[in-house]
């Protein structure tokens, strides 16, 4: 019974929790380690999980994940320092060159850098949606905020990334070429 419920929670939520942890830490390895810690804690609190109504379990799991991230920040120096490390690691290199924008690989790297440079809250929600496959209602439930706020912040994150990647300029240039040609 205990193991069945745990299996259900792991298969149902591990991708989403991993996405949240990746959004908070910007490191695949750290997120994987924290995912293990989070589910180990869940396993050791299965009697609590069994008592929590099914619709509230996601919030409970994300509370554990959030606390684990706080512990991680506490143990690995202060949070600001960690944020700066993330930004430094993902420092975007502006290309300013149209041909480089056309190179898919470079654009991929630019996107990763730009995501790493987003404010933590935006980055986290965006990764929960893109990597965790969660919609705004699920993200809202997990983080304890209204779905409308999630949608608004996701749209801001998208806008920031599109501008940072120069996608609007690229589209405009393509449009001009079409008109002139």
């Amino acid at each position: 019974m205990k193991q069945d419920l745990f299996h259900e929670l792991y298969t149902g939520c591990s991708k989403q929790v991993y996405a949240y942890l990746l959004g908070r830490t910007s490191s695949k390895d750290t997120a994987a380690d924290l995912l293990h810690d989070v589910f180990l804690r869940i396993w050791n609190r299965m009697e609590v999980a069994e008592r929590i109504p099914a619709e509230q379990r996601l919030y409970w799991i994300f509370s554990i994940a959030s606390n684990r991230v706080k512990d991680h920040y506490r143990n690995s120096g202060n949070r600001k320092q960690a944020e700066e490390q993330i930004r430094g690691r993902h420092q975007a290199t502006p290309s300013g060159d149209l041909s480089s924008l056309l190179a898919a690989r470079e654009q991929f790297n630019e996107l990763e850098s730009a995501i790493g440079g987003l404010p933590e809250e935006f980055r986290c929600m965006l990764i929960m949606k893109a990597v965790g496959g969660m919609n705004s209602n699920q993200i809202g439930d997990a983080l304890g905020i209204p779905a409308g706020t999630v949608r608004y912040k996701l749209s801001q994150a998208r806008g920031l990334l599109v501008r940072q990647l120069g996608l609007l300029e690229t589209e405009a240039a393509a449009g001009r070429r079409k008109t002139n040609g």
């Binding site: 591990s14 991708k15 997120a31 991929f108 996107l111 893109a130 990597v131 990334l161 996608l167």
Partner: peptide, 20 residues
């Protein structure tokens, strides 16, 4: 629409790489 589509595609490609 085209910007949106390109961005979604780029993000989806990145998400595959970022997944566990």
């Amino acid at each position: 629409v085209e910007t949106d589509r390109r961005f979604d595609q780029l993000l989806a490609d990145w998400a595959v790489h970022a997944r566990l």
